[in-house]
């Protein structure tokens, strides 16, 4: 069987399938499905739900709706905030047998900086020097469901560069920047992030959209707009990954509608070193593990290696 392990900066992943931030609560899964979830997580690295500085209630309901070939959500970065994350979640998450990628979101550069600083202190305290091989950071500059910060930073190459530069100065570990596709030129934002010091690019977050209630003919979601995900966005996401692969040297974590092993092959061919399962994990929380297994079989069947597959779409037939 093909060796699927992959090096993502200082993190060693057993296979290249992880989760998209905000789509998997691993402790909730363990409560429902049993301790095997924590002993053998389906993901090769666990990406946390986005951590914000202060507790956030998130958006008013309704927050989700199925759409043709996908779903739309407007959760709005709800969560208990940094203090609770550091005290309650971080120690448990570091007990997982796979690396941890902590997604963080802020409403100003200063907030990202404070969160990164606190996380670094906590990781040094909890793990010691070796923490860099255990945990990385993902800057969420792409949530479409909050009304300031976040995606407004990620929609601007200059602001993106400045934020990444600031965090890079103080964060020695893996630094992933998660991009919004709701921009004219995602490759330009990716270039700005990488030249400011990002180690990897995650692409893409959800597409900003709107659904109308069939009875009232008014916007359905409490937040009016939401983020579209699922197979419906896959060709859009593939295009972004394809363009980013040409634009940056840094590894790409590809996502956007991944539901089958064929999707994984396509994202890797377009340039994703690692892929993330998002909303398709809602119908099967074990999907990432299934896809990793199927990827090994698919590579074997096709006589391909992962290195041969990476960026294949960019090479002449």
């Amino acid at each position: 069987m093909v060796d699927l392990s992959v090096q993502l900066g200082p993190l060693r992943l057993d296979h290249p399938v992880i989760n998209a931030s905000g789509t998997m609560e691993i402790f909730e899964l363990a409560e429902t499905f049993g301790p095997h979830v924590l002993e053998r997580p389906p993901v090769a690295a666990y990406v946390s739900k986005t951590v914000t500085l202060k507790p956030r209630a998130g958006n008013p309901p309704p927050r989700i709706l199925e759409t043709a070939g996908g779903m739309i959500n407007a959760i709005g970065l709800s969560g208990p905030g940094l203090d609770v994350f550091v005290k309650e979640d971080l120690p448990r998450l570091l007990g997982l047998p796979c690396p941890l990628i902590i997604s963080i979101g802020g409403f100003s550069t200063g907030e990202y900086e404070v969160i990164a600083g606190r996380l670094q202190e906590a990781l040094e305290q909890l793990v010691g020097e070796g923490w860099i091989e255990r945990a990385g950071l993902e800057l969420n500059i792409s949530c479409p469901n909050v009304h300031s910060g976040c995606a407004s930073i990620g929609s601007d190459t200059h602001e993106t560069g400045e934020l990444v530069k600031t965090i890079r100065k103080r964060w020695p570990g893996l630094l992933v920047v998660k991009l919004t596709p709701n921009v004219a030129d995602i490759a330009a934002v990716g270039r700005a992030a990488v030249s400011a010091g990002a180690d990897a690019i995650a692409a893409v977050n959800t597409y900003k959209g709107l659904v109308v209630d069939r009875v009232s003919l008014r916007p359905y979601l409490g937040n009016i707009t939401g983020g579209l995900s699922g197979p419906a966005i896959k060709p859009l996401a593939l295009r972004s990954v394809y363009e980013l692969f040409d634009a940056v040297e840094a590894p790409i974590i590809g996502m956007g509608g991944i539901a089958t092993v064929e999707d994984v092959l396509e994202f890797m061919s377009c340039g994703a070193l690692v892929v993330a399962v998002g909303s398709a994990g809602f119908r099967d929380p074990g999907l990432a593990g299934v896809l990793a297994h199927q990827l090994a079989v698919a590579l074997d069947t096709r006589g391909l290696t992962r290195a041969g597959l990476l960026g294949l779409a960019h090479r002449p037939v």
């Binding site: 909730e28 899964l29 959500n73």
Partner: peptide, 8 residues
Amino acid sequence: ACGVGSCH
């Protein structure tokens, strides 16, 4: 969506 507490 998820039924297990993941998606909020």
